[in-house]
C-alpha cells in the first residue's frame, strides 16, 4: 500500500499516525511533508527507524521548491511527477492522509 503525506510533520500528526499503524509498503512525502525527509530535523531518527519497515520516497520538485534538495536523509528515494504516478499505479491501494 502507498501512503501519501502532505503536511509538515512538525505541526501535524498525520505522519506520526501513519508510521504508528503502517507495517509495510511505501510512504511518499509531498508538499509540506517533504521536511520529514531532511537531515538534521527533529524527525530524522524516527524516519530512519521507519525505513526498516517501509520504503520512504520524497517528491523532488517539492523539496527543491523549499531549498532542501541537498539535505535528503540517506536512503530516502526521490521521485518526479511521473514517478508519483507510477507509484500510485503500482500499488494495490493508497491512502492520502489528511
Amino acid at each position: 500500500m502507498l501512503h501519501i503525506i502532505n503536511k509538515s510533520p512538525l505541526s501535524n500528526g498525520a505522519l506520526d499516525s501513519c508510521l504508528r499503524v503502517a507495517e509495510s509498503g511505501e510512504i511518499l512525502l509531498i508538499e509540506d511533508a517533504v521536511y520529514a525527509a531532511t537531515k538534521g530535523s527533529a524527525l530524522e531518527g524516527k524516519m530512519k527507524e521507519a525505513m526498516d519497515k517501509l520504503k520512504v520516497l520524497v517528491l523532488l520538485p517539492d523539496l527543491e521548491a523549499r531549498g532542501l534538495a541537498d539535505r535528503i536523509i540517506e536512503g530516502v528515494a526521490t521521485v518526479d511527477y511521473g514517478g508519483f504516478v507510477d507509484l500510485v499505479a503500482s500499488n494495490k491501494n493508497c491512502q492520502s492522509w489528511l
Binding site: M1, V21, S24, G25, K92, N93, C94, Q95
Partner: peptide, 16 residues
C-alpha cells in the same frame, strides 16, 4: 495499531 494498519492494506479504497 498493527491490526488497523493490516486492515488498511487489505482495502480496495481507503478514504481519509
Amino acid at each position: 495499531k498493527k491490526e488497523i494498519g493490516e486492515l488498511m492494506d487489505q482495502q480496495d479504497v481507503v478514504l481519509s
